[in-house]
């Protein structure tokens, strides 16, 4: 189990995170927050790239910093825009990373072959990555994070650049992996979270403001999300979330604390309740953020 106890991180006088306490058990945890909320700071601390100013992070009761290489051996990490070696093939690149992850040579050869199959790159395994698309590079990144069969997998924007088919494949892979390990995802793509996450951790203004199952998070807006073809109603009644075109009309989705926003609609216009989703919660929670 991974635990954070009252973790605070300061950069000089700037406080990036304050008194964060979290427990992670096997499953998929999604970090949901706008840029600048402290998400990357949290991820980098879990990856031992930076260290808490106060508090401690424990893996099965032991401080992760004191564990050193023993902790890094159980860690799989995919940074955002992870960079890669254009003049090498995915196989060469993965074998190199397997070496610095201290995976034995024979195990590495077998594992690299398996992972290239898993991420659908077996047929280009020996081609230079120079000509790879963003999605292919990202799949190489996902493969490297799994090289050492990590018990803790930290993925920062893992589906960025993936097409819908690749994204589905990735979600399935994460679901399979999460049965016996902790997966922490940082993503802006709400549909990824709704599909695979067991827990959603929301960060706002340096604090954890929610840590619950997606259904529980979504229930925060139960009975408060509406749609209308009368834009004026949305403006009067609450916070506008999204707009879309449907049969020539503009349908506005909004949050209202009023139990009957239809009372203020113009004659001939409609207002109807809809089931909230995670995107609604995200837009509502972070409405004041840039």
């Amino acid at each position: 189990m991974l635990s954070l106890h009252n973790v605070t991180k300061n950069y000089g006088t700037f406080e990036a995170l304050r008194n964060v306490t979290l427990d992670f058990t096997p499953g998929v945890y999604a970090l949901l927050a706008p840029n600048g909320a402290g998400k990357t700071t949290l991820i980098k601390m879990l990856a031992t790239l930076i260290f808490p100013t106060r508090g401690e992070i424990l893996w099965n009761g032991d401080d992760i910093v004191a564990l050193g290489a023993a902790y890094r051996d159980i860690l799989g990490y995919l940074p955002q825009d992870f960079g890669y070696y254009k003049n090498h093939s995915p196989r060469q690149f993965l074998l190199y990373l397997a070496a610095i992850k201290a995976v034995g040579r024979e195990t590495a050869k077998r594992r690299v072959g398996e992972l290239l199959e898993t991420v659908g790159l077996a047929d280009v395994a020996d081609k230079k990555m120079r000509a790879f698309s963003g999605g292919m590079v990202q799949r190489v990144g996902i493969a490297q994070a799994l090289l050492n069969e990590p018990q803790l997998l930290i993925l920062d924007e893992p589906t960025a650049g993936l097409d819908p088919k690749e994204r589905v494949r990735f979600r399935n892979l994460i679901s399979t992996l999460s049965k016996d390990r902790i997966v922490i995802l940082s993503t802006h793509i709400v549909s990824d979270i709704e599909t695979v996450a067991n827990h959603v951790i929301m960060v706002q203004d340096r604090h954890i403001i929610a840590n619950a199952a997606p259904a529980q998070i979504v229930s925060l807006l139960e009975g408060r999300v509406w749609e209308t073809d009368d834009m004026a109603v949305a403006g009067k009644s609450g916070l506008v979330l999204t707009e879309r075109q449907e049969n020539g009309a503009t349908i506005t989705r909004f949050v209202s604390d009023s139990t009957a926003p239809q009372m203020v609609s113009a004659p001939g216009r409609r207002v109807w309740p809809v089931a909230p989703n995670l995107e609604d919660v995200f837009l509502h929670t972070y409405r004041d953020e840039a």
């Binding site: 980098k44 990856a47 031992t48 790239l49 290489a69 890094r72 051996d73 860690l75 990490y77 995919l78 940074p79 955002q80 825009d81 992870f82 960079g83 890669y84 990373l97 610095i100 992850k101 201290a102 490297q144 050492n148």
Partner: peptide
């Protein structure tokens, strides 16, 4: 120059 540096810092041999 890239996030590869961070990635390699999380390996067994940093």
């Amino acid at each position: 120059a890239t996030a590869m540096y961070d990635l390699k810092q999380t390996a067994h041999f940093t």
